[in-house]
Design a protein around this nucleic acid. Structure first.
Length: 425
RNA sequence: GGAGGGGUGGCCGAGCGGACGAUGGCGGCGGUCUUGAAAACCGCUGAGGUGCAAGCCUCCGUGGGUUCGAAUCCCACCCCCUCCGCCA
């Protein structure tokens, strides 16, 4: 959620910025008009309430001193004031609701450094790492997986439906190994704290990170209990500090967590349906940062490096792209995607997305910090990034490390997590 | 799932219809005293809105209701605790 204050201070700048994301700017003018009206109404309602409060104090005094006639007269007058106050607050509430509603339609303006562009195909490549295998020099991961008995897509579909994967044997152990490897890496090398959150959240949490109301259709819902299966660990982890004021000394707060991620992928029917490229449940280790505002763009670079190191440790050639204006998410000010090369399917696979949300989420969640005991609380900046998402990482890993003899080489860094296994065969 | 108890400021805890944004204690900050510290003593110490400011307004789990007036009474919901049942 954007600050109303920012719209008042610089309406034209905000309009220009959100246009870069391809959002229509007229909502800004509508909001400013409603805001002016609200402040007017509030001033009047305020005066009325002040009158009522003062009158009530006076009435209490009259009753205590037994001045009955005066008390009755005042009481009658105050009853009328109360009716007026009620009418006023009713009108106020309507206008506040409309402001609240419109405010949620305004995206986070992209940072000045974000490149122009309409969509993902225009994202500039900022870094590329590793020597990628020629397209076709490998095999699609579903062939490798089936041959080596690593996962069973048909039985996964039998259990839960198409897009749900049953990992088997070494494939199952590989899931566990990757989760452990990623958490340990960020814990031991990058200084993150580990948490293990609930894998479902309530509506307030889903609202906090912006899954509700915008992306409701993407989540699996447990209607009976009012719970949502998490689409990413970002949701429970960022919400840990919802409605709290953190001591400045706690910042930056770096947290790493594993969760399964459930996504309905509504609207993506027919896209990437084979193999592990687009599934309804995948495992992901996520990094979340709560930081001081002036450091958030530096922290984004650091976060992105932390994710990149995870890919490099798996010896997977990848590239880092910066999301252009048209591809930066609604709630984000700036972000990078990490794309691993999958030579079997001949595609770059998005295996991490690292973003700075500035104060857009923290305003919604009311997460603040306080510098000194007498300072006003300020909103933190929130960031998150995958480190990494498993299903696609597994796809890239199988296709990249496939050997001529049909086995898959296990990258050295992963071996301790697989009981020393050097090759899957 | 059943029965009871409870949600008040950073924490503990009082208030149970009018002078209460809320006594008191702890913690924190500032000061006096001290060579320094501790102790003692004094003062300050919730968040938000609006305003140049004084101030005014809102918030006592959440939402409704009763009343001229609600932290206080009524209803619903949420959360926590205790006991019983069930259970990995």
């Amino acid at each position: 959620m954007i600050a109303l204050q920012r719209l008042r201070d610089d309406p034209d700048g905000v309009k220009r910025d959100i246009a870069r994301k391809g959002e229509p700017p007229d909502v800004v003018d509508r909001l400013l008009a409603a805001d002016a009206r609200r402040r007017e109404l509030e001033a009047t309602a305020n005066e009325l309430r002040a009158r009522r409060n003062a009158g009530n104090r006076q009435l209490g005094e009259l009753i205590r001193t037994q001045r009955r006639a005066e008390a009755e007269a005042l009481k009658a007058e105050l009853a009328n004031v109360s009716i007026e106050v009620d009418a006023m607050t009713g009108g106020l509430r309507d206008i506040e609701e409309s402001i609240e509603h419109d405010l949620l339609l305004v995206p986070n303006p992209p940072h000045a450094s974000v490149p122009d562009g309409r969509g993902a195909e225009e994202n500039p490549v900022v870094r590329e790492w590793g020597e990628r295998r020629a397209e076709g020099s490998s095999a699609p991961h579903w062939e490798i997986g089936e041959r080596l008995g690593l996962f069973d897509l048909e039985r996964g579909a039998k259990l839960a439906g198409s897009g749900f994967v049953l990992y088997t044997g070494v494939g199952a152990r590989l899931q566990r190994a990757l989760i452990g490897f990623f958490i340990d890496l960020h814990l031991e090398r990058h200084g993150y704290r580990e948490v293990w959150p609930p894998f479902v959240v309530n509506a307030a949490s889903a609202r906090g990170t912006g899954q509700l109301p915008d992306k409701e259709g993407q989540m699996y819902v447990v209607e009976r209990d009012g719970l949502y299966l998490v689409p990413t660990a970002e949701v429970p982890v960022t919400n840990i500090y919802r409605d709290e004021i953190l001591p400045a000394g706690e910042l930056p707060l770096n947290v790493v967590a594993y969760t399964p991620c459930w996504r309905r992928e509504a609207g993506a029917a027919g896209r990437d349906t084979r193999g592990l490229l687009r599934v309804h449940q995948f495992e992901k280790v996520e990094m979340v940062k709560l930081v001081r505002p002036e450091t958030s763009y530096d922290e984004l670079e650091r976060l992105t490096r932390d994710a990149e190191e995870a890919v490099e440790a798996l010896e997977l050639p990848y590239r880092t792209v910066e999301r252009c204006g048209g591809d930066v998410g609604f709630a984000q000010a700036k972000g990078y995607d990490l794309e691993a090369w999958a030579p079997g399917v001949g595609k770059w696979l998005e295996i991490s997305s690292c973003s700075n949300y500035t104060d857009f989420q923290s305003r919604r969640m009311n997460i603040r910090y306080r510098d000194t005991a007498d300072a006003r609380p300020e909103l933190v900046h929130t960031l998150n990034g995958s480190g990494l998402a498993l299903a696609r990482t597994v796809a890239a890993l199988l296709e990249t490390h496939l050997q001529p003899d049909g086995s898959v080489r296990v990258p050295a860094a992963l071996r301790p997590h697989l009981g020393g296994l050097e090759a899957i065969r």
